[in-house]
């Protein structure tokens, strides 16, 4: 039991990753408001940054700045941090594009609620069908 508790406590950052990831994914799937969807997606993407940074940590390691004449220093792995700089850029671009699309959707439909948009599309389809029948 204690070993299990230990394992959980020693991996608390991974627990945070999983929690954030699931919160983000759940919001992106379940919310009808498009802005909330984008925010959920953004949380989901951000959780991955924490995952990568966690795996870069070396116990007792310090920032990877080489000091001349010292070879007894343990460094953290810098590569995942660099990868995440790219992932942050990708995340920002995706969020920006998502929000820009929402602005356009709001201009076209007058709402950002998914169920209202679906209802408007459906009403349009039915109108088309009726006008076809009439002609």
């Amino acid at each position: 039991m204690t070993s299990l508790a230990n394992q959980i406590l020693s991996h608390w950052n991974y627990l945070a990753v999983i929690t954030l990831m699931m919160i983000g994914l759940y919001i992106a799937i379940s919310r009808g408001n498009l802005v909330k969807k984008v925010m959920g997606m953004s949380v989901f993407q951000t959780s991955v940054i924490l995952l990568y940074v966690s795996m870069a940590k070396v116990t007792g390691g310090t920032a990877p700045i080489l000091i001349e004449g010292r070879d007894d220093i343990i460094y953290s792995n810098p590569l995942p941090h660099v990868l995440m700089l790219t992932a942050i850029v990708v995340g920002v671009a995706t969020t920006a594009l998502g929000l820009a699309l929402i602005v356009r959707i709001n201009e076209a439909y007058g709402t950002v609620e998914e169920d209202e948009i679906v209802a408007m599309d459906r009403a349009e389809d039915e109108r088309d069908l009726r006008s076809e029948d009439a002609s």
Binding site: A28, K37, Q45, V48, T94, L101, R104, I105, A108
Partner: peptide, 20 residues
Amino acid sequence: NRRALMAAFSYLIMGTIGAT
């Protein structure tokens, strides 16, 4: 068609989840 916007938006959400 204005539905293209919603199509692009759902693809954005799905595609981003896939890429992530």
